[in-house]
């Protein structure tokens, strides 16, 4: 079985990672301004765990994902995947990571090359890794994500948002990864389709024994999908814990504000108004 995880190592370890970006100069003189995207982030994701990362725009969650996927390098700190420190590994030694860790992105419009047929999109990771990209495997993947075999002949624009997200998932699963990173995979989808895609991710993670890192701005979605969650704000993790606990009894003031701001049907139907979403009154509820 190719999907044998390496024993005894956490799937992902992030140790005190800092990432600064230089901002484009606005003047010739003076130092280059710097954006501190991550200010010392540490986390550990165990094998087979469903780990959530929650935060609002600009909190650094996308930067963190890119570092874990070795699509970017930290300014300081270490990223260790399945026991291997990838922080300074050159691209040619990242092959194990490129096979074992795959991503699903948020935007179903921009995550598929509009000029490629679906079967070529799905086969791309296989071709890159030098595996034979058989039509058989592509059909198998299409079927796994609930698309018909003839979908392979078409172009991405011929599919709805939810179907494109399925194609993205099929592409991610093609090289039989052990770790799946999903970056806001349902944020752009309609509610009636969101449930389908969440179920699909859930099923595939179970079936294929994947470690899932699920990033979202929506704590309710993360609560449904993940066992454990890290809450990020301004480049730092402010709180980590079992999802149900964090949701029910948030400890950090930011998490409290975040939880109280989420409108839910239950609260609304029991009489909550918009004022109850605001921090001061929300906490007393």
């Amino acid at each position: 079985m190719p999907n044998e995880p390496a024993p005894n190592h956490p799937a992902v370890q992030v140790i005190d990672v800092v990432r600064d970006y230089p901002r484009p100069r606005t003047s010739l003189l003076g130092p280059t301004p710097v954006v501190h995207a991550l200010r010392g982030v540490s986390l550990e994701v165990k094998q087979g765990e469903r780990f959530g990362i929650v935060g609002e725009s600009g909190c650094g969650k996308s930067t963190l994902l890119r570092l874990i996927a070795a699509l970017d390098r930290p300014t300081a700190g270490q990223v260790v995947v399945e026991g291997t420190d990838i922080t300074t590994l050159p691209e040619r030694r990242l092959r194990f990571l490129r096979e074992n860790l795959q991503l699903v992105f948020q935007d179903p419009m921009s995550s598929l090359d509009p000029r490629m047929r679906v079967r070529d999109i799905i086969a791309e990771p296989l071709v890159v890794q030098g595996h034979p990209a058989s039509g058989e495997r592509v059909r198998e993947l299409l079927e796994a994500v609930g698309l018909s075999a003839d979908a392979g002949d078409r172009y991405p624009h011929q599919f709805s948002g939810g179907q494109r997200q399925r194609i993205s998932i099929a592409r991610a699963l093609a090289p039989r990864p052990r770790i799946l990173i999903a970056d806001e995979p349902v944020s752009a989808l309609d509610v009636s389709v969101r449930a389908q895609v969440l179920n699909l991710i859930s099923d595939l993670v179970d079936e294929l024994n994947l470690t899932l890192i699920f990033v979202s701005h929506d704590l309710s979605v993360v609560k449904h999908v993940c066992d454990r969650v890290a809450v990020m704000n301004a480049g730092q993790i402010v709180e980590t814990g079992p999802t149900a606990d964090v949701y029910a009894a948030p400890q950090h003031p930011y998490t409290q504000r975040l939880v109280s701001a989420i409108p839910t049907l239950e609260r609304a139907l029991s009489g909550a108004t918009t004022t109850d979403l605001l921090p001061s009154k929300g906490e007393t509820a």
Binding site: E124, V128, S168, P175
Partner: peptide, 17 residues
């Protein structure tokens, strides 16, 4: 900047391809 290029990089595609 598109996510499909990001996905290709994550799959190990080299810059020239």
């Amino acid at each position: 900047r598109t996510e499909y290029v990001l996905a290709a990089r994550a799959a190990g595609r080299k810059p020239f391809p």
